[in-house]
């Protein structure tokens, strides 16, 4: 009887310790949990150095009419900690815009720099930062959706977890810290096993849900980097939809920083 008492006391003590331990180190707060989910996603991206791919965007209007844009895309991983990835896109089709190119220098903390190359005028045009919430190539994607998502550019809040397809997803509310975003906040679902972005909901300046992006067809490259093959953006206000397909990914090509210099854009014409 005495033995049982001691044992149960011992057990209670152990339980108390565990409880005390739990109180001493409370679980991660929602901000840190959110941030760590995003950081785990970004970590799978680190060290890709550069990539090349073909991009096709189907623009689908309310009545189902489709028009297509094809681009060739080059990405250079951020050269320094203060700058983000650099993205160079060149229109391949339709022929009406062939050669038109867009250069984006993503930034951390401030607005991205964006340049356009207009081949008919042989002219490079720099766009004001606030214009990046505008439509990219007439699609439901804006320039800021196309640019790279840099960790330090958001405030995070972990909202919970839920099942997404066969996976579990962390739901993270991200509030842009850079100026002139078209969004008050976005809600990102990260799958908790492979840390991929599965779905993003975009809320406008009036906190209204305007767009939803579904990411799918993930492929793993160089044993580490996940890339979504299909990104489908639905606009809930207009009923329009844009489906972006990425194909022919290549990594580690050895792209040079100078190819991403705005003054070199004209060289693309040769």
């Amino acid at each position: 009887m005495k033995k049982i008492l001691i044992l149960s006391l011992w057990g209670a003590l152990c339980g108390t310790f565990t409880l005390a331990q739990a109180f001493a180190a409370p679980p991660l707060n929602t901000a840190d949990r959110g941030r760590s989910a995003a950081a785990a996603w970004k970590a799978t991206d680190l060290g890709f150095h550069d990539s090349m791919s073909n991009m096709k965007i189907d623009l689908i209007d309310k009545s189902g009419q489709t028009s297509v844009r094809s681009l060739h895309m080059k990405v250079l991983e951020k050269p320094t900690a203060e700058t983000g990835d650099q993205i160079l896109m060149r229109f391949v089709a339709p022929r009406n815009v062939k050669g038109t190119s867009v250069l984006i220098h993503s930034k951390v903390g401030t607005s991205d720099d964006v340049w356009l190359l207009l081949p008919a005028l042989r002219r490079t045009k720099r766009i004001a930062a606030a214009d990046k919430s505008g439509s990219f190539a007439g699609s439901e994607f804006s320039y800021e959706d196309i640019g790279s998502m840099e960790l330090a550019n958001y405030k995070y809040e972990w909202l919970g977890e839920e099942a997404c397809d066969q996976l579990t997803c962390a739901i993270v509310k991200q509030t842009p810290l850079y100026p002139y975003s078209g969004y008050n906040f976005i809600i990102v679902r990260y799958d908790t096993s492979q840390f991929r972005q599965m779905k993003i909901e975009f809320f406008d300046r009036k906190d209204q849900l305007v767009k939803t992006l579904q990411l799918g067809g993930y492929q793993k490259y160089k044993n580490k980097h996940w890339r979504a093959e299909t990104m489908s953006m639905s606009n809930h206000i207009t009923g329009k939809k844009s489906i972006l397909k990425m194909t022919d990914y290549k990594f580690g090509i050895g792209l040079l920083a100078r190819e991403f210099r705005p003054r070199q854009l004209k060289e693309l014409l040769d």
Binding site: S111, D113, R126, I127, A128, A129, A130, P179, Y180
Partner: peptide, 9 residues
């Protein structure tokens, strides 16, 4: 000279 400000060029 072009000055690309946040809203105005």
């Amino acid at each position: 000279i072009q000055a690309t400000l946040d809203h105005i060029v």
